[in-house]
């Protein structure tokens, strides 16, 4: 084997997946743990993430509340999950007494094409969800 081709192959091997991927059922189980068994209802929370992603290493993600939220509803938490990453959890935001507009932006890694789920928890215990199916053409080097 020529030295250069060996180096290329070794590099490729280093980036090969270890085979570990979260499953949609894992995300469902995590969501159920938050809601206390009930499925989260679609609505109230809005997940903004591009449907077509070129580079999974850094993907802009914004969670906010929709217009269907009653004025007296108090947001306490937003959880974000990704069912195709090595681990399903992405981030958990907690909103305190001094929180302003219920909107958070960050940047995430997406290992492959997958469904991203946001779950918003309100002070009255109700849980609402939004999902986006994302097509990733160049995956994050998670593995």
């Amino acid at each position: 084997m020529r030295r250069r081709s060996f180096v290329v192959m070794a590099g490729a091997a280093a980036m090969l997946p270890m085979g570990a991927r979260a499953k949609p059922e894992e995300v469902e189980a995590l969501v159920r743990a938050i809601t206390g068994g009930a499925p989260a209802r679609p609505g109230r929370v809005k997940l903004d993430v591009p449907e077509l992603v070129e580079n999974g290493n850094t993907v802009g993600l914004t969670v906010s509340l929709g217009e269907d939220v009653p004025k007296d509803a108090v947001l306490t938490d937003i959880h974000v999950f990704a069912d195709g990453n090595p681990r399903p959890g992405v981030v958990h935001f907690r909103f305190g007494k001094l929180a302003g507009v219920p909107k958070v932006a960050t940047r995430v890694r997406l290992a492959t094409s997958q469904t991203v789920t946001a779950v918003a928890v309100f002070a009255d215990g109700s849980c609402w969800t939004d999902q986006v199916a994302v097509l990733v053409t160049w995956s994050a080097c998670l593995d």
Binding site: N57, T58, V59, A82, N85, P86, R87, G89, V90, V91, H92, F93, R94, F95, G96, K97, L98, A99, V104, T106, R107, V108, R109, L110, A140, L142
Partner: peptide, 14 residues
């Protein structure tokens, strides 16, 4: 008084 907190996982970009 808390404003905001986040628990980050490895899925947060560098």
């Amino acid at each position: 008084e808390e404003v905001f907190a986040a628990r980050l996982e490895p899925a947060i970009a560098a």
